[in-house]
């Protein structure tokens, strides 16, 4: 599904440069639920953004769904993002002046799906997220958990292959975080690949594989079976 080979990324700000990703090799299979951990500045968000084609890598190979992603035009990138990927952000990134239903329907708007059809589809996803009665409310009338469920509904509506979540629980309390993770697991159960960037161990622990980044390199990959062992070792440390 997602294959990364020796991905490098450097940011330039004036005369100083910052080598953020230093040769990332990674393979994520279809249907996996993976988390990426690391301290701030480790490059985890950058990696997610490159996978989401919101940013481009400097060197290395990146294949998504067997297609090599290289020198994408913005138009093509927008097309891939719309078709393959659903984003969930820490700060929700909902459009403030559109109501819940319109927010969810937006990706279909860019696919030029007729209004009635996309609103119907949006209602279905809102229902799945238990937000049907909030369909005509604006985002700022919703709680944090509701906003994130709304964002997830928006990510799902275009039936993506991959969900990319950047600190999806970062702005939520622990109870809502558990609720959101439950939703991610349900989505995962339907066969969608999910990548979650997080720094919370409890969240990472819920995933099948944990990729730990440190200073732009993959420090360790912990498989499902080893998870408990890893947790224990963390506790012992």
């Amino acid at each position: 599904m997602i294959v990364l080979k020796d991905i490098n990324k450097t940011y330039y700000t004036g005369k100083t440069s910052l080598h953020v990703l230093k040769g990332i090799d990674l393979k994520i299979n279809q249907g996996e639920l993976v988390s990426i951990m690391g301290s701030s500045g480790s490059g985890k968000s950058t990696l997610l953004n490159i996978i989401g084609m919101l940013d481009n890598h400097d060197s290395g190979d990146f294949c998504l769904n067997d297609e090599k992603i290289e020198h994408l035009s913005e138009k093509k990138a927008a097309f891939y993002r719309n078709k393959f990927i659903g984003f969930v952000f820490q700060s929700f990134n909902l459009i403030s002046f559109k109501n819940a239903m319109e927010n969810v329907a937006l990706p279909l708007y860019y696919q030029k799906v007729p209004r009635k059809l996309r609103n119907k589809s949006a209602m279905e996803y809102l229902e799945k997220m238990g937000l049907a009665e909030w369909a005509h409310h604006l985002p700022n009338e919703l709680s944090g958990g509701q906003k994130q469920r709304l964002a997830i509904a928006r990510a799902l509506i275009s039936r993506p292959k991959v969900i990319l979540a950047d600190e999806p629980t970062g702005a939520l309390d622990s109870e809502t975080s558990i609720e959101v993770m439950k939703i991610f697991k349900e989505i995962h159960a339907s066969g969608i690949t999910i990548l979650i960037v997080t720094h919370e161990r409890e969240i990472a622990a819920e995933t099948e594989r944990i990729i730990r980044l440190k200073d732009g390199r993959i420090e360790s990959i912990i498989e499902n079976g080893q998870r408990k062992k890893w947790l224990e070792s963390q506790h012992m440390a």
Partner: peptide, 16 residues
């Protein structure tokens, strides 16, 4: 800017 960023993240083409 941010709103436009969101729209592009969820698939708005530059032309749109």
């Amino acid at each position: 800017t941010k709103e436009i960023g969101i729209q592009r993240a969820i698939g708005a083409t530059p032309l749109a």
